[in-house]
Simulated assay, not measured.
Amino acid sequence: MAERRTVLSASLLGLAAAAPAAAQTEAKPLAGKAALVTGAARGIGRATAVELARQGAAVALLDIADPDAIPELRGYRLASRAELEEAARLVRAEGARALPLVADVRDWEAMRRATERAARELGGGRLDVVVANAGIAIDGKLARYEPAPWRAMLDVNLTGALNTVQAALPGLRRPGGRIILVTSVQARTGSVASGAYATTKWGMTGLMKSLAAELGPEGITVNAVAPTGVDTPMVGRASEGRGKAHPCTVHSGHALPVDLLEPAEIATAIAFLAGPGAGFVSGTTLDVNAGKSAQLSA
């Protein structure tokens, strides 16, 4: 009888020891994965890198990291090297590996080198998740839009997204690779004051759907997340309390009582599409727009 109690006690101890391990695995759904996030120095990109790290992924944080790289920008600056390093520090604070990479998404060859390094150093030659988030916004009416900012918007937002995907594809895991494009609520509507931005985001939706159809047979999912207005430097929000009025009108028409969302709220949606619960979700846009979808056509 004593021997039986000893065996039973040992079994119970084994179960107790296994329970925290199982809980830890459950809490880290991206453990062992390698991810690449563009535009990762701040805003949605930084929040996404941190959330993927929190869920267990090693993260390559790619950013142009040069405030003066695009002279056509008006009203806000691009991220700096210091901001990229701070984003990498926040990823490491989650206990994850971080690899900051300085590259311009407009430069295909630079993106090829960066993605190869990310796959080699973080994933043993493979990437599991690619988040094409880098983007810029230059306001202006389309009827009078100047050629230089138009080209800049296309080059960063649309061509940059394609460059990111093309560069990462050779090392993307098959099956099981995940590609997520960050579009916008303006990929669902027209815009009076930022029509060029809306045009590029509509183009990204077409890019996402075409890639989903093309890459599906290889076991790769491709989706988009379309945020409403988010409290980032691009929006140019003053340091007010959350939910207060703001001159940006992209978020008008929310059903939920909120003005701008926080970057972390977009990051959790991106992480869902990168995680095990979205293995058979592809070719779709996940709207994170505080209920503005209620005003859009089905």
Results as ranks from 00 to 15, higher is better:
240 E>P: 09
267 A>G: 01
61 L>Y: 02
263 P>H: 07
22 A>D: 09
186 Q>D: 12
155 D>T: 13
168 A>L: 04
217 P>Y: 12
270 I>H: 00
196 A>Q: 09
245 A>G: 14
119 A>W: 02
214 E>W: 05
56 G>R: 06
254 H>W: 04
255 A>S: 15
202 W>S: 09
87 A>N: 05
73 L>A: 08
256 L>T: 14
216 G>D: 12
62 L>R: 03
86 E>S: 09
95 G>L: 08
249 T>C: 02
92 R>N: 08
181 L>K: 06
172 L>R: 02
101 L>Q: 03
25 T>K: 15
296 L>A: 10
83 E>G: 00
209 K>F: 07
204 M>C: 10
197 Y>C: 06
95 G>R: 04
204 M>W: 02
126 R>E: 15
77 R>S: 14
1 M>Q: 08
72 E>N: 14
214 E>T: 09
200 T>K: 05
282 S>K: 03
203 G>P: 04
229 G>I: 00
200 T>E: 06
95 G>F: 02
93 A>Y: 05
155 D>P: 08
151 R>M: 11
16 A>L: 14
41 A>G: 07
31 A>I: 13
119 A>C: 01
127 L>E: 03
200 T>L: 11
85 E>A: 01
224 A>I: 07
95 G>S: 06
296 L>D: 11
8 L>W: 09
134 A>Y: 02
233 P>T: 10
103 A>R: 02
153 M>C: 08
124 G>M: 01
162 L>Q: 07
109 E>W: 06
165 V>C: 01
197 Y>I: 11
167 A>P: 06
11 S>I: 10
280 F>Y: 09
266 I>M: 12
62 L>K: 00
277 G>K: 10
96 A>G: 02
221 T>E: 09
75 G>D: 02
83 E>P: 00
184 S>V: 06
232 T>R: 02
15 L>E: 15
157 N>T: 07
262 E>L: 13
238 A>W: 01
62 L>H: 01
113 R>N: 06
198 A>L: 10
234 M>K: 06
7 V>T: 14
50 V>M: 05
126 R>G: 05
192 V>G: 07
73 L>I: 15
273 L>Q: 04
92 R>F: 13
166 Q>K: 10
233 P>H: 06
7 V>N: 05
82 A>L: 01
296 L>C: 08
16 A>W: 10
261 L>W: 13
46 R>F: 03
74 R>A: 03
65 A>M: 06
285 T>W: 07
87 A>I: 07
132 A>K: 01
22 A>P: 09
178 R>C: 11
